[in-house]
């Protein structure tokens, strides 16, 4: 069977999103198997953006569920607004006997009820309670759930393509992991990073690109840094450098606009100490 007659929608990356073959294989395995894709990686490696680009490439709608530390699994399915109903019961203008009008669909509920296949992004699942992923297991497996208050069953009309991201703030339960396709986005190597920069700044001068890359990886290599700068910070930094019309020689000699890359006061001090020493020479 050759690649162009595969029985599922294939993701091949987009002009703006550069994905390595490992990530493409994982995305396509997840789509083909109908299993959720769990993407892990350092902050700023493009996990959330990936969902947007899969949606764009496959021409599907994206539904995002931003998980918070207080999120409960059920909120993703639906919420029964009992307080509203209770309040309405005091007045005559609404039919409080109709429980269905007090059901508010969550992102998962909307994805299941959609008339066409959608992409469902469950963003930063590790922010929630440890039990949160387990509570979603059955719904993601069987793609259906019951609305207890009405006795209705909601079944996915089209199995959504589910993408889950995690910053590894918490470990995820084993049973949950077993059901996912997994991909870890490693921090981009130099060559991939320069491709990424070229996408964002197509007209960047080669010397500037090289000088910033050198500085960036030098910074990331410093062990004493508490928070290493990520891709998005590098892109911000380059934008500032271009706007400020900074000379390439200046980047080689010092670190202008260090604040765009390093955010913690102690890290700034550490970097300055290193810059004064030999380590900072280019």
């Amino acid at each position: 069977m050759s690649a162009n007659e595969t029985p599922f929608d294939q993701f091949r990356g987009t002009d703006e999103y550069i994905a390595d073959p490992a990530l493409l294989a994982a995305v396509n395995a997840s789509i083909a198997l109908g299993r959720p894709l769990l993407v892990k990686g350092e902050p700023g490696t493009g996990k959330t953006v990936l969902a947007r680009h899969i949606a764009a490439a496959l021409g599907k709608t994206l539904i995002t569920w931003n998980v918070k530390s207080t999120s409960k699994a059920r909120e993703g399915l639906y919420e029964y607004d009992v307080v509203q109903r209770l309040n309405d019961a005091r007045f005559d203008d609404r039919d409080v006997a109709d429980i269905r009008s007090y059901i508010r669909w969550g992102p998962l509920g909307r994805a299941f009820r959609s008339d066409e296949q959608v992409i469902l992004l469950i963003d930063e699942i590790d922010k929630a309670d440890i039990e949160f992923p387990n509570d979603l297991l059955q719904e993601l497996d069987e793609m259906k759930f019951d609305v207890v208050e009405t006795g209705d069953q909601v079944e996915a009309k089209h199995r959504p393509i589910v993408l889950i991201t995690s910053n590894s703030e918490k470990e995820l339960p084993d049973a949950f992991l077993r059901r996912c396709v997994f991909h870890y986005i490693a921090f981009p190597e130099r060559s991939l990073m320069s491709a990424i920069i070229n996408v964002h700044f197509p007209s960047i001068e080669k010397t500037l690109l090289e000088a910033t890359l050198y500085r960036f990886y030098w910074l990331r290599g410093l062990e004493e840094l508490r928070k290493k700068p990520s891709t998005s910070e590098l892109l911000d930094w380059i934008a500032v450098l271009i706007r400020g019309g900074i000379d390439v020689e200046a980047i080689k000699a010092e670190l202008p606009f260090l604040g765009a890359l390093v955010k913690q006061e102690r890290d700034v001090e550490n970097v300055e100490v290193r810059l004064r020493g030999r380590g900072g020479m280019m």
Partner: peptide, 28 residues
């Protein structure tokens, strides 16, 4: 096996490697 059958690996050993890793290994 399901992913292989659906042709995700695109018949290459590199594809085989990536698909196996994505489906069988769940932590970096």
């Amino acid at each position: 096996l399901g992913a292989l059958e659906k042709g995700v690996a695109a018949e290459s050993l590199t594809g085989f490697y990536y698909v196996a890793r994505a489906t069988l290994v769940k932590t970096e």
